[in-house]
Structure formats: structure tokens, C-alpha cells
Design a protein around this nucleic acid. Structure first.
Length: 923
RNA sequence: GGGCAAUUGGCGCAGUUGGUUAGCGCGCUUCCUUGACAUGGAAGAGGUCACAGGUUCGAAUCCCGUAUUGCCCACCA
């Protein structure tokens, strides 16, 4: 016998225990059918496809925040949901090495000791990072357990695992062999802080207040005494040290005659040409543009067109180098000041205007990014993008919400090459070796590179590229590298493609798009389950559905951030409100496609709901005991009972699924057809309230299933909340108090409720389910069946009829409330069936006990007719099908006095409010 | 500059393909500690559905425009 439940739900008392029980019973472990011969429950389906989610790996340095709690909860809910539907469900966990983020973190730590990575050298530095990683890395993986995450922890992967490393190198080599990876000199986004290149996606453009400086460059060979000038405008004066030309539009009448002549670049005293290029817009600024190919991407292009030299005036720290003449050694912003000052002394500054323009900042470090000329590795994206766009356009991969296709299409059709080299140490080192001759040899390791060199006739020393690969160059392989690619690992064959990707839209380019490309590009080397080659796109894509959720904001709509201190710690929330409360609340607040506003107090909502469920169960257990005392033969725990007559395994569905993921078939139904013909009669004699709650329950189950499949998960929570609280607790349990015969059905419905709610609130439902069913600890609700709707039980007539009863009850309450009749006070009540409807009268009559009790009637008359009793004697209220009269009792002097006081107080309050308003208006 | 969203009672949000009286939670007012739950129950107040026009017998819902807010992309020195 389970112990009696405490008066309120205390999450901390149950969460740890159940999580350990789940792990001990291998609830989260997923395997191929042949590795999973004995399923303890005998219900693991081999005839259904597996359900797989690969986690978007959080940074290994990461600490759980509310955004994580949100995305992980969604993933866990879907994993648990499909597990209950009988799919072998695998949630693949892991972490990302997060090159820049991690390296920055360690370097910051070292700075406190007065060290830089260069003091240690590459090898020692990496040792230190690994030490840190082993000690503190992956905290988030531990924290996910507190959230109740049901990932298969045995499979936890890290993007720098040795096997993963091999996958990354293999990928690089293959793309290089295919000619899709090249090395080139380009203007890239340079982070002076990280001292590394950044990809375009790692740069955030922000409107920034700056100045637009107008400088006069003297023209050489001016006729006459007056020196002529061209005035250029720039936002970055320091780059003028690297100017190699000034460009004008070829059709600009003002400057046409200067084309071909030369200018004297001030401060540097370098003679530079005046050239014509269409890029220059006549209307902007002065119509003259200084050209600095080494420091601006557009200038770089112009420089190529006109065969101009590239003069790099900065070093990697954005300090002026030897090409900057006497400005050498100045930091970029100091140099800017000095350049302007000196030009002012020379009288060459025409004017300086305030100017707001868009400037790039590093996503990680936050510092201003410098467009910088350097040698980097690139991936040619066009050939990869084309099929990746196609699979989304063709619906092989579905986006939820669908509109993200537009964004995706736009990016894929305007895609630019991907700069994948990073001047860091923490990451996958680029597998390229340089010969003294300048030749480059790419290989899986130094031996392979050397062989290639030999074959090319080179036998001298080889030096490996010092740079590492962009973190995303490893993440884009995640859906298959985690399963051992490039090996044709049986797990890879079994579980690829994954079913669902749950992620934020902000990484649609960083990650989602690139995973799709990688899957299509690299998976053909892995055969299908039946051994045939993997050619079709549908077998190569990394996932079939993508659920883009939105970002969590604070109650003011601001982004959660450490510096604002507006991000509550999920672990605190869990300690205070309980895991289920956090999970439920966060999902309830999260409509698909909209930002979520979240504050700590919001969790009260979920906590209250968990407590409601807890107390509903307490009540049902109590009623069940009473019922059993009155019906000694009833055995609630056993399957062949009255209880199970109304909630039984549907023989057509329970074991044999159809193999399709979308139909969600398989599982329990509410009040399925009675297995025993003898119970048929029992069913027929069910009360209106019973038919109603069964209808509502099945409607709820149907809506839940539909919302799950549309990825409208906040609807799922809403539907369950409304059904459980409003229908089941507020109405049905009240009726059970009046009709003890409904107890078995109340128990059955509750059991179903716990199943439906379990993926969302795993802890409280597991606890209550065991209290209700008395199942041993190793029999888990999470491994048992989900509820599937029996749509035949959705009974519109019963709902309509019961709705009429509800209306009538509410009308009685309203009249009583208007009459200030104390709830404890009984009253004489008359209910008329309007329109002379005998059917209504019959329904009222059959539910007389309910009406009597909920209206607290001393005498209840039910009648046909339209007679109007309302007068001094009766107060009345009309509803669609019924009319209610409540007899007015004579008040005692005391009651009248009390009421007068109350009304006076009310009047005072209203008058005061009115005064305030009119005072405001006249102001 | 291009694109995508959003705009509904004090706050946060629902409202599916146009159809009676626009719902919910929080907050507010009044009442209720009757043996599930005060983390609760009952009743109530509070909305010209951003604005303007159009389609329609009928618009929060469809169309056009405007405004405001947020986000994404691009970027002209």
C-alpha cells in the first residue's frame, strides 16, 4: 500500500529519487533492435522507426541558463513522448569545444596569473585547456539531469573526441580533394582581441555614432599657383596610411578631367593615381573615394580590378606597423586621432561631421572588428548550397514555423564562401603542410602529406599550418560524426537521419544550413540498412523536421544576459519551484514563433498546477478508498476490473504500430470499447457527467496529439491545463463528491491524465502514478503507453447537454451571489426548461442531485413552462436553455446593517476613484 | 535599403479555414478556511481587437495603405 500523500507537493522530495530510478532502469538508453533483445516491458517496438534527436551541443564551458532550460525541455518532452508511443527514442547528448569562447576563457584565467598563451607555448597551453575541460567542462551536462533530461548519457560526445577529430579531418581532406576548399588572400573580419579571423556570421553589425572626416588630397601638377585638391570622406582616417588611389565615378562631370592624374597622399608623401570605377556613387559624400585595398573589402575588389598594390598598415593587434611610417606602434584609435591632428595642422581637414553608421563587432569579444587582409582557408559554398536548398524547398526537411524557409532561401541563394581558418590554438588543427617552396600538401596526417609531397617531387621539410578550424566546421558534422562517421557504424546506419532538430533560429546559418549541406555531401559514403547505397536525398539529410523556437527574454522584453543580471539561474528555480513547474511554465509561455517573456515569478504558475494535480490525486485516492469500502469486490490495481473497463488497451493498436511516425498510433485510449460484453450495459448506464468527461478527455487527447505533431507545444500545455483544471477538477471531481458511482471513472481518467502529462512533468506524474497504481518502482510510466484518443468517444451531444447543466449551475450561483446569499445558506430554487423542452427537463431531472448540491437548494423544483416568478419573492437569471429562480429570504436586521455598511464602503471607494480620475482630466 | 514578425482589458498572451455574447493566466473587487487543494473555490469589474480605407449579409480574422515596436539580411567611403 502506498503511503498517504502529503498535503502539498514537495518536488525536492521526489525528483532525485526518480531520476536515479530512471537511470538505474536504463529508461534513457536507446539501442539497435539486435542489441536490445530483452526489453523488460516487452513493448519496445521494432516495427516503428526510431526517434532521434541530436542535441545542439552546448559550449563545453557553458552553464545552464533559462534559454537552455527551454530548448532542452522541448527536446526532452519530444523524446519522452515518442518513447511512450513505443519508438526506440534516442536523445544524443554532447558538448562543443567552442574554439574562441573556450580559448578566451582560459586566456582570461591566465591573465590573472600574468601569463599569455605565448608564454606557455602551444603544447603547454593546450594541455592546460584540456585540464580545465576535464575538471570543469561539461558542467552543463550534469545540470541537465536536474532538468530531468532523458538523454542517453552513455553516448555523450565532445567535438574534440579523438574519433570526432578524425571525422573533421576526413571532411577537410575530402572537400580539399574535391576542390571545394582553397586558400586565399582576402579581406576578412579580424578580431584584434582573439587575434583571429571571424566568419561573416560571427560579426554583429550595430549602428554606431562616429564621425565622417573630409580630407583634402593635393593634386600633383596643378597648373597655376593655386593647389587643387580632391576631397575624400572617410570614417576610418587611420586607414589612409594604406591608401593607394582615389576613385571617382567615370561619369562624374566634376572629376572626369582628373582621371589619370595623380595625388600626393598626405603624411605618407606617396604619389597615388586618380582612377575611375563604377563602384563610386556620385551622390554620396564628395564623390571621391580613397582606396585602401588592404583594409576594406570593397577597396580590395577595386584594387584587383585596377592592379593596385595592397598596403597593410596594421599588425594582428590592430597596431600600426612599419608600413605606417612614423605612426608605427600606435593602436588603431590612437592612430586615428594623430592622423586627424596632423592633417589639421596641414590645413587638409575640410570638415568633420557627426555620422551614424553600421559597424561590425565581434559576437564573442564585443570589440570592433577590423577588415583585414590575410591568408585564410575557405570553403566554396555554392555547390553545397544548391542541394541543401532543394531538400527544404521540396519538403524533405520541414521547418516549423514554415516561414523560416524564406530566410533560409535568401541566405542560400546569396551565399558567400566560408572562411574556416581561425588563428587560435584550441580546435582542430588544419591538416595542411607547407613546403619551403611554398607548395601546400593536405593529408589526414603528416605521413600522408609527406607522401603527397614526395609524389610531387619535394623531399624537404614540411611545416603544418598553425591555424585551427572554425568551431562550426566540426559542428556541421554533428548528426553523423557523433555516430562514428566516416565508419559505417551500425548505429549510424540505424539512427541516421535523425528525426527532429530543436534549435533557435539565430543559428540557422551557422549551423542548421551547414548541417544540411554536410549530410548531403558526406553521407553517401555510408550504405543504407539493407546494404544498398545511400543515394537519395531523403536518406542523406541530417534530420526531417526542424523546430525553430524563439528566444527567452525577461519581463521587459530584454535579452537575457549576464551583464544585465536578468537571467535567473534555472537551478535556483528548480530548487524553489520544482523541475516540473519550471518545465511546464516555460513551455506554457512559449508560443511558436514569438519571443518568450519570462520572469522568475512565472514559475508559480507551474508550481500551482503541479500542486493542483497532486491534490486531485489525493482526493481521488480518498474517494477510491471510500468506494472500495462500499464495493469490497472492486480491485483497482488489477487489470480486469471495472476501472480498466473504461480505460483499456485497445487491442488493435497497443502492440502493432503502423511503422509511421506521424500517425502516433499505439498506446492507451480513454474509455475504449469494453472488452467484456457484460460491461456493455454498465457503459450504457453511465451518467451524463461520465459521458461528458470521457468526451472531454478524448478531445483533449486528440488535441494534444495534433498540437504535438504541429510543434505547437505551448498549445499542448494549454490543452492539458484547461482539461485538468477546469473540466476534471472544477467540475468532474465536484460531481464525484455527489455521485460516488463515478469514482472508478475518475480514477481511470486521472491515470490517463498522468500519462498524457508525463513527458512535460515527468517527476510529479511518475510519483503520482505509482501512488495511484501501486506499481513497483521499476515499472515506469515513462516506459509505458501514451494515451491516444478514441475519437468515437468524443460526444458532442453529451458536451452540449452538460454545458447546459453548467450554464444552469452558474446561473444559480450568480443569482445567489447577487442576492448576497451566503454559500452555506440553503435556498428554494426553481429551474425552468425553456421552450417547453421535455428533453431539457429530462436532462435536468436526471442530474437533479447535482443541481441540488451545486445550487445548495433546500427545495428544487424542475418544470416546463414560461411562467415568470420574478418579483419581490424571486430573483432570476436566464440562460440559453434554462431559467433559474431563487427565492429571496427575508433578511434579519443585522444582515441588512452589514450589507448597508458594505455598500457604503463600496460607494466611498468608487467616488474616490472618480475624483481621482476627474482631477487628472481637469489637469 | 530589402525582408519577416508583432500590435486584442493594467501586464503577459489565445482566438484554427471570416459566423451568435472576443477567451485565458497574473493583477484588481466581493464573498467563502463545507473533510483534495488558500499553491484553493465562487461571483464580478475591466476591451471602439494600433489607425484609415476596402471586400462581404457579416471582419479581431481576408485585401490595400499608414503608424509604432522588435528581429533578420545587406550596406555608400
Amino acid at each position: 500500500m502506498p503511503e498517504p500523500l502529503a498535503k502539498a507537493y514537495t518536488p525536492s522530495a521526489v525528483e532525485k529519487r526518480w531520476y536515479e530510478t530512471w537511470e538505474q532502469n536504463h529508461l534513457f538508453d536507446a539501442d539497435r533492435p539486435e542489441r536490445n533483445p530483452q526489453d523488460p516491458t516487452g513493448r519496445r517496438a521494432v516495427d516503428k522507426p526510431p526517434f532521434v534527436i541530436a542535441i545542439p551541443p552546448p559550449n563545453v564551458t557553458g552553464i545552464l541558463h533559462v534559454g537552455h532550460a527551454f530548448t532542452f525541455t522541448i527536446q526532452d518532452v519530444y523524446t519522452r513522448y515518442h518513447r511512450m508511443l513505443g519508438h526506440e527514442s534516442l536523445w544524443m547528448p554532447g558538448t562543443d569545444h567552442a574554439g574562441i569562447a573556450t580559448q578566451t576563457k582560459i586566456e582570461r584565467e591566465m591573465r590573472a596569473e600574468g601569463l599569455t598563451r605565448h608564454d606557455l607555448g602551444r603544447e603547454k597551453f593546450l594541455e592546460r585547456v584540456w585540464e580545465w575541460k576535464d575538471k570543469y567542462g561539461g558542467i552543463i551536462i550534469q545540470q541537465m539531469r536536474a532538468l530531468g533530461c532523458s538523454a542517453d548519457w552513455r553516448r555523450t560526445r565532445f567535438t574534440m573526441d579523438p574519433a570526432y577529430y578524425e571525422a573533421v579531418i576526413e571532411c577537410f581532406v575530402r572537400l580539399h580533394e574535391k576542390g571545394l576548399i582553397y586558400r586565399g588572400k582576402r579581406i576578412i573580419n579580424w578580431s584584434p582581441l582573439a587575434q583571429s579571423a571571424l566568419s561573416d556570421e560571427e560579426v554583429i553589425h550595430k549602428e554606431t555614432e562616429g564621425k565622417l572626416y573630409y580630407f583634402k588630397y593635393p593634386i600633383i601638377g596643378t597648373k597655376g599657383n593655386e593647389t587643387e585638391y580632391l576631397t575624400i570622406a572617410t570614417t576610418r582616417p587611420e586607414t589612409m596610411l594604406g591608401d593607394v588611389a582615389v576613385a571617382v565615378n567615370p561619369n562624374d562631370e566634376r572629376y572626369k578631367h582628373f582621371i589619370g592624374r595623380t595625388l600626393m597622399l598626405p603624411l605618407m608623401n606617396r604619389e597615388i593615381p586618380i582612377i575611375a570605377d563604377d563602384y563610386v556613387e556620385k551622390e554620396f559624400g564628395t564623390g571621391c573615394v580613397k582606396i585602401t585595398p588592404a583594409h576594406d573589402p570593397n577597396d580590395f575588389e577595386i584594387g584587383l580590378r585596377h592592379n593596385l598594390p595592397q598596403i597593410n598598415v596594421m599588425d594582428t593587434r590592430a597596431v600600426i606597423n612599419e608600413n605606417g611610417g612614423r605612426f608605427e606602434g600606435l593602436e588603431r584609435f590612437d592612430a586615428r586621432k594623430r592622423v586627424v591632428e596632423e592633417l589639421q595642422l596641414l590645413g587638409l581637414v575640410e570638415k568633420i561631421e557627426n555620422y551614424t553608421h553600421s559597424v561590425g563587432y565581434s559576437e564573442r569579444g564585443g570589440e570592433m572588428v577590423e577588415p583585414y587582409l590575410s591568408d585564410q582557408w575557405f570553403v566554396t559554398m555554392k555547390p553545397l548550397a544548391e542541394p541543401a536548398l532543394q531538400v527544404v524547398e521540396d519538403g524533405l526537411i520541414k521547418f516549423y514555423p514554415e516561414r523560416w524557409i524564406n530566410t533560409y532561401r535568401h541566405w542560400m541563394t546569396n551565399i558567400r564562401d566560408w572562411c574556416i581558418s581561425r588563428q587560435l590554438w584550441w580546435g582542430h588543427r588544419i591538416p595542411a603542410w607547407y613546403a619551403e617552396t611554398g607548395e601546400i600538401f593536405v593529408g589526414r596526417n603528416e605521413t600522408e602529406a609527406r607522401e603527397k609531397a614526395k609524389a610531387a617531387g619535394y623531399n624537404g621539410p614540411l611545416v603544418q599550418d598553425p591555424d585551427v578550424l572554425d568551431t562550426w566546421f566540426s559542428s556541421w558534422l554533428w548528426p553523423f560524426a557523433t555516430f562514428g562517421w566516416p565508419d559505417a557504424n551500425p548505429d549510424l546506419v540505424e539512427f541516421y537521419p535523425t528525426s527532429l532538430l530543436v534549435t533557435g533560429f539565430e543559428i540557422i546559418f551557422f549551423w542548421v544550413a551547414r548541417m544540411i549541406m554536410a549530410g548531403i555531401e558526406f553521407m553517401p559514403s555510408i550504405p543504407l540498412k539493407d546494404g544498398s547505397p545511400r543515394v537519395e536525398l531523403k536518406d542523406r539529410i541530417p534530420f526531417r523536421e526542424v523546430y525553430f523556437h524563439n528566444i527567452i527574454r525577461d519581463l521587459q522584453g530584454r535579452k537575457m544576459s549576464k551583464s544585465l543580471g536578468n537571467s535567473p539561474d534555472p537551478l535556483d528555480l528548480i530548487a524553489k519551484y520544482g523541475t516540473d513547474a519550471l518545465r511546464f511554465t516555460i513551455l506554457y509561455l512559449a508560443p511558436l514563433g514569438q519571443d518568450i517573456r519570462f520572469g522568475e515569478e512565472s514559475c508559480e504558475f507551474g508550481r500551482n498546477f503541479a500542486n493542483k494535480l497532486w491534490n486531485a490525486t489525493r482526493f481521488v485516492l480518498m474517494k477510491r478508498d471510500e468506494y472500495q469500502a462500499a464495493h469490497p469486490k472492486t480491485e483497482f490495481e488489477s487489470e480486469d476490473t471495472e476501472l480498466m473497463a473504461s480505460i483499456l488497451k485497445n487491442p488493435g493498436l497497443s502492440k502493432a504500430g503502423t511503422g509511421s511516425m506521424s500517425d502516433h498510433a499505439g498506446g492507451l485510449v480513454f474509455g475504449g470499447p469494453p472488452p467484456n460484453p457484460l460491461l456493455e450495459k454498465e457503459w450504457e448506464s453511465k451518467s451524463l457527467a461520465d459521458k461528458w468527461i470521457l468526451s472531454r478527455a478524448n478531445r483533449c487527447a486528440r488535441d494534444v496529439r495534433d498540437s504535438f505533431s504541429r510543434y505547437e507545444i505551448n498549445d499542448v500545455t494549454k490543452i492539458l491545463y484547461d482539461f485538468i483544471w477546469r473540466d476534471y477538477c472544477d467540475w468532474y471531481l465536484e460531481i464525484v463528491k455527489i455521485q460516488p458511482d463515478s469514482t472508478p471513472l475518475a480514477v481511470a481518467i486521472l491515470e490517463g491524465i498522468l500519462r498524457m502529462l508525463h513527458p512535460i512533468m515527468p517527476f510529479v506524474t511518475e510519483e503520482l502514478w505509482h501512488a495511484l497504481t501501486g506499481e513497483p518502482e521499476n515499472v515506469l510510466i515513462g516506459r509505458d503507453d501514451y494515451i491516444t484518443p478514441d475519437e468515437g468517444k468524443i460526444d458532442d451531444a453529451a458536451e452540449e447537454e452538460f454545458g447546459m447543466l453548467q450554464d444552469t449551475v452558474e446561473a444559480m450561483r450568480l443569482v445567489r451571489s447577487t442576492l448576497k446569499l451566503a454559500p452555506s445558506k440553503q435556498a428554494e430554487i426553481v429551474i425552468q426548461a425553456r421552450d417547453n423542452s421535455e428533453r431539457i427537463l429530462y436532462i435536468l431531472e436526471s442530474s437533479r442531485a447535482i443541481l441540488e448540491r451545486l445550487g445548495n437548494a433546500s427545495k428544487l423544483s424542475l418544470e416546463l413552462g414560461t411562467q415568470d416568478y420574478s418579483s419581490r419573492e424571486y430573483a432570476s437569471e436566464i440562460r440559453a436553455r434554462t431559467r433559474v429562480f431563487v427565492k429571496i429570504e427575508k433578511r434579519t436586521e443585522e444582515e441588512i446593517a452589514t450589507e448597508r455598511d458594505r455598500l457604503q464602503k463600496e460607494l466611498d471607494r468608487v467616488l474616490k476613484a472618480a475624483d481621482q480620475v476627474s482631477a487628472k482630466l481637469s489637469n
